[in-house]
Design a protein around this nucleic acid. Sequence first.
DNA 1: AACTTCACTGCAATCGATTACACGAGGAGC
DNA 2: GCTCCTCGTGTAATCGATTGCAGTGAAGTT
Lengths: 345, 345
Amino acid sequence: MQRVTIAQVSERAGVSTATVSRVLSGKGPVSAAVERRVRRAAEELGYQVNPIARALRNSRTDTVGMVVPSISNPFFTSLVESVEHVLEREGKELFLSDARSDPAIEARRLSSLAARNVDGIIVSPSHGTESGPAVQETADRLPLVQLDRFVGGTNTDWVGVDDVAAMRLVMDHLHEGGARSAAFIGSLMTNSSTEQRFAGFRRRAEELGMSVHPDQVFLGDYSVDWGETAAARLVNAGNMPDAIVCADDLIALGVTRACRAHGIAVPDQVQVTGYDNIEFSRLGEPALTTVDQPRDRIAEEAVRLLAAASRAGDTDRGPSARIALVPTLVVRDSTRAGAARRPGR
Amino acid sequence: MQRVTIAQVSERAGVSTATVSRVLSGKGPVSAAVERRVRRAAEELGYQVNPIARALRNSRTDTVGMVVPSISNPFFTSLVESVEHVLEREGKELFLSDARSDPAIEARRLSSLAARNVDGIIVSPSHGTESGPAVQETADRLPLVQLDRFVGGTNTDWVGVDDVAAMRLVMDHLHEGGARSAAFIGSLMTNSSTEQRFAGFRRRAEELGMSVHPDQVFLGDYSVDWGETAAARLVNAGNMPDAIVCADDLIALGVTRACRAHGIAVPDQVQVTGYDNIEFSRLGEPALTTVDQPRDRIAEEAVRLLAAASRAGDTDRGPSARIALVPTLVVRDSTRAGAARRPGR
DNA sequence: AACTTCACTGCAATCGATTACACGAGGAGC
DNA sequence: GCTCCTCGTGTAATCGATTGCAGTGAAGTT
């Protein structure tokens, strides 16, 4: 299949390629008669610009790259969806890469996206420190925004939620439900999400006078399996806290599952909370109380920042923006106040 | 940030750009001394080829496009993951698009990918008929493989599983567990998955002498909500079948959830089966008996077909390949034979 | 000594779109 | 009638890598 080039259109319309380009891009003065002829010819031939040739000439691709730690984590896929919707409105396309939670793969993805001349990159860094060099290096080359997670040692824009504030909501809610002691289950402290959430958890627990036993902080990874494992350990240790606070919904789903298996009633014997409000969080047994992140807003801000950075060019790398949006608490049945408030389901 | 071009490398090495290109691509004869100099220069400058310039010249991008109906459906995301892994081995990159189950969006995605000169496209069509024109048109332009689902009126390669055989496994298993009547919950008959699965269901039910009440076939969409809704209708109608066969796991999760809400015991009062073996299927209450699709194999075959089509070029569009892989039944606790076989979890 | 042959290497065209610059025609101003 | 704009259009350079063709010199042949 031979593609239609601008030269063929120009020939058919009896003008030069320059004129065709001017008509189609709307720049430059063109007489009405010629404009009509060109549009006609382009229409008839079914002409489509070749984005590759254009990109070579303009070094703009109308493409944004996105790198997430794991595409199988529903939170990230819904974030990707939100970003895609926003980009579509701008007429840009999304190049998605999965880093498989490995900073080395992540670095390769980033450099490959940069080489492909994407106009900007949105990345949720896999690792709290090791992702640093690659992210910074990429950010030096082109507009880059970090999403949700944040990696140390970098100086780029960031959009996410205020994890500490979120944890305050969670802890206040648990406290209100009668909890006076709590355990925390998160991932190893290799990313900002867990760090921030744990910090917020710890601080508010202290302020509320809730006890946190040092043995009841479990760090593994963001997965259902890890939630089950950690909860099982908690059960076997025999000293159940009043509440289990999880760093994400997958972990929380594992926890409630383990509780069910061990005959521990949620929320009567132990309250459980998640984080992210993924689709499946409401399907747990019981449905999870969790923290909702305003994903659409996050996506919107991220795209806005990218666009701003593109316009600014390399000239003024001002101080980077850090936008923390406000999360909300979604109360369901895995916490006591929730169960009391909404009897039934 | 100024990018390093082949001209800068050639200058530093004191040779022409042609020679640099030959060294770096490994084609053409080059003396050992020059080769060393060039490699050194490239190394020192941190040269990276510009994929865009290369693509313009070669019309190859080492990029594959993939279009799925919904990125939030875990089945498709894990399929995407599998495809990505396979492509990585080939040194190709994946361009992922979400069609949001809308043939119009899908058509735009396809044409945009084609315009971007991807080397091939893997698509799981959103709609059983309406996706046809766009898919066929794209397939006429470049190598294309349909995955999992198949759209009528097209003549392209396809890789998926034998849905009819899968349903035979499901029905035999249910029958063995004592089921003598069954309901079916799927999506509207707008894609091959549901069609094939329903056909297999119906045929085997007949062969086994299981009754299928016409009112107990529910078609909506692939979602948990629809599963809940349909199951609720079944309950309210008051005439519960021995088994509920679902066209995918999301629906089945909705069904088991509705059963729980209505106090109907699974599998004692009604057996339930899913399809796809998504991660969450084992987390249902009870864990779902489902059909596992060999995703890695599917991905592998798809990439292999694409590569073959690329090599063949436009010259010989032979008859298209249709590769149906063999699915397996994963027995868990939502069916009686399963519960009996594996007491406990 | 004259002629091939072959291994290297460079020149320049090419992919397709964009755009700075140049040019010609027509109109305004004096 | 002459200069000076302005408008509309074409010419050609450009983006960066690849590659067909041709040229050079050295080695091998007769």
